[in-house]
Amino acid sequence: MFYQIDNAVLTLVVLCALAAINIKDLLGAGILFGAYSFMMCLLWAVMGAVDVAFTEASVGAGVSTVLFIAAVFRTSRRTKD
């Protein structure tokens, strides 16, 4: 495959992770985490680990985002720190 794609996706993964840590809005953090998972899914797929990519897509990018958002709605959108 093209290692440039790998590098680009890897950069995005790191960016998403940093952003998810730093963002004050928890809803945003949840969605960024979804994006992060999706990027990871791409990486797995590129590396040929299709099963893992599949799991990551369904669990990480799919359901866990929903659960995060539900939890944020039921608690608070702002972090304390």
């Binding site: 299709v50 099963d51 990519a53 599949f54 799991t55 369904s58 669990v59 799919g62 359901v63």
Partner: peptide
């Protein structure tokens, strides 16, 4: 590709 985990989650 697939299996119980993925299917269950979907």
């Amino acid at each position: 590709p697939g299996g119980g985990f993925q299917g269950g989650v979907i």
